[in-house]
């Protein structure tokens, strides 16, 4: 059975349809890539799954239960965590405290929350920066902090919104390793990414959206050869 089912979801902002009738499933344990040109509605789709925006039409199901009417914190409690494309560190808190704050979701007491946070920081390679006030972190580490914070809520599914954008080559490789390790832990991943090489390499399946509509779904090989996808990214062959 699918872990998350997105069923005929539409999201309108006034007269603008940011997402039109999108449906797809996320299977347990897989990495699902979500790609599409700028403004296609990827982040909006995340915000709908995560509960920030209720869908105008359609349903989101998590483990067979309807979650599309819930608040973000309730959805997080059920086991879906997310990161933000525009990173939102808790600026005047240390890196450790950032992660402790999110570890409290499942920890019974402060000692346990700190233990979970420290483990998560080691896992994401931020342990040496734990005392740094997160305002002073470089972008690469802020992106990792987003991942660490999401992981500390001990989710079943993690939604990663452009966790690789703006990273240099070595940071990119580190982050790919982290994603692979997250998958090994049995956590399902849905990821938005512009970096084609990365997404093609790590995704089990890919969903492509353009102008708010799903235009393709399949393995990276299928996506690469799909004429609709090529058209969305490169334009129509005839008009070129």
């Amino acid at each position: 059975m699918s872990l998350i089912e997105v069923i005929n979801v539409s999201k309108h902002f006034g007269g603008l349809a940011a997402i039109k009738n999108v449906s797809f499933n996320i299977n347990p344990g897989e990495i699902l890539g979500l790609i599409g040109p700028n403004g296609a509605g990827k982040t909006t789709l995340f915000n709908v799954v995560n509960g920030f925006f209720p869908p105008t039409k359609g349903e989101i199901m998590f483990k067979g239960k309807r979650i599309s009417h819930l608040q973000p914190h309730e959805i997080c409690k059920l086991g879906i965590a997310r990161t933000f494309q525009v990173v939102k560190p808790l600026q005047r808190m240390s890196v450790l405290d950032n992660v402790v704050a999110s570890a409290f979701l499942r920890a019974k007491n402060k000692t346990e929350a700190i233990r979970i946070a420290q483990e998560t920081l080691k896992f994401t390679g931020l342990y040496n920066d734990k005392e740094v006030i997160s305002k002073g972190l470089p972008l690469g580490k802020r992106k990792k902090l987003e991942i660490a914070r999401a992981l500390a809520t001990q989710p079943e599914v993690i939604l990663l919104d452009e966790s690789f954008a703006g990273l240099n080559h070595s940071e990119l490789n580190e982050s790919i390793e982290i994603i692979k390790k997250i998958k090994e832990r049995g956590i399902t991943i849905m990821i938005i990414e512009h970096h084609m090489k990365v997404i093609m390499a790590i995704s089990d399946r890919i969903v492509v959206i353009n102008y708010g509509e799903k235009i393709a779904e399949g393995t990276s090989q299928e996506i690469r050869n799909n004429p609709l996808v090529i058209e969305a990214y490169l334009g129509d062959a005839k008009s070129a």
Binding site: F52, P72, L90, A101, S102, F104, A113
Partner: peptide, 26 residues
Amino acid sequence: IESKLGYYFVAIREDQDAAESLGINT
């Protein structure tokens, strides 16, 4: 302030949306 409540209060101060997405009922 030294308990869970304190962490949650400061998290809300720093970024309400981020706090909400960390499972905090803001």
